[in-house]
Amino acid sequence: MKINMTHLRQLEAESIHIIREVAAEFENPVMLYSIGKDYSVMLHLARKAFYPGKPPFPLMHVDTTWKFREMIEFRDRIASEYGFDLLIYTNEEGAKQGVSPFTHGSALYTDIMKTEGLKQALDKYKFDAAFGGARRDEEKSRAKERIFSFRTESHRWDPKSQRPELWNLYNAKVRPGESIRAFPLSNWTELDIWQYIYLEQIPIVPLYYSAVRPVVERDGMLIMIDDDRLKLLPGEKVEEKSVRFRTLGCYPLTGAVESTAATLPEIIQEMLLTRTSERQGRLIDHDQAGSMEKKKQEGYF
């Protein structure tokens, strides 16, 4: 008999344990769904946790209205295929005011459409727990994040008042209005995620695979022209390049990388041989050191 479980099986078991614990302890949990690869893994783990039953919570996508079209197609297909209840929430106030990454700048736009939208959605449905797909290896300030991360009534994260987590015991007690963000993938690294996707053949948005796509170079990043809302600035020109995305978000804020990796093994190979971390592709992290921490205190995932 094999005495040791492989690292992926250990991570998988830990995540399933966390997902079951949230489902059992909270009255009204929700699984946030950003459609990215980590969320594909989290969804897969949620299905495993309750098999042969279905996960006893809905999925929720906070739609900024600026996601890649392929992401939206993928989202709808996956939800219906697996029979998940899918909630879609958009900050209507922001949308009505025409808040976009172009008019308001990336920081303000993210704050209104993403952070504010998420808070509104959680308040609207009175969710007392929300699963997120964040990992501790993504960014320095995440290394100390709890698996059950406590948020105040105003969704604030206070690094000083986080609860110690010992063994596999998670304190799930909250008062009305307070909530927990639960991170089942805390201990996974980017490589683990990719290896697991490969091992389990988990579907991911095709944008992760290389293809010839129309892109424009802006602020040192390759931005894909996903629809006609992206207006070219003077001097910019559209190029057809073989690119893929290492991370997915709002298309005007997400940089593509030039690549020919069109299969999972090729993606993993490319990742192992590259020398830049994946958040490099996200505009919102590029402020001064500690920017993520500030965003988290304000309620960003």
Binding site: R136, D137, K140, S141, R142, A143, K144, P159, Q162, P164, S186, N187, T189, A289, G290, E293
Partner: peptide, 20 residues
Amino acid sequence: LDGLQAEREQGITIDVAYRF
């Protein structure tokens, strides 16, 4: 390794951080 800004300013680590 230093994560949280307040700690960095104090020059000490004050919590448990997980590294991979």
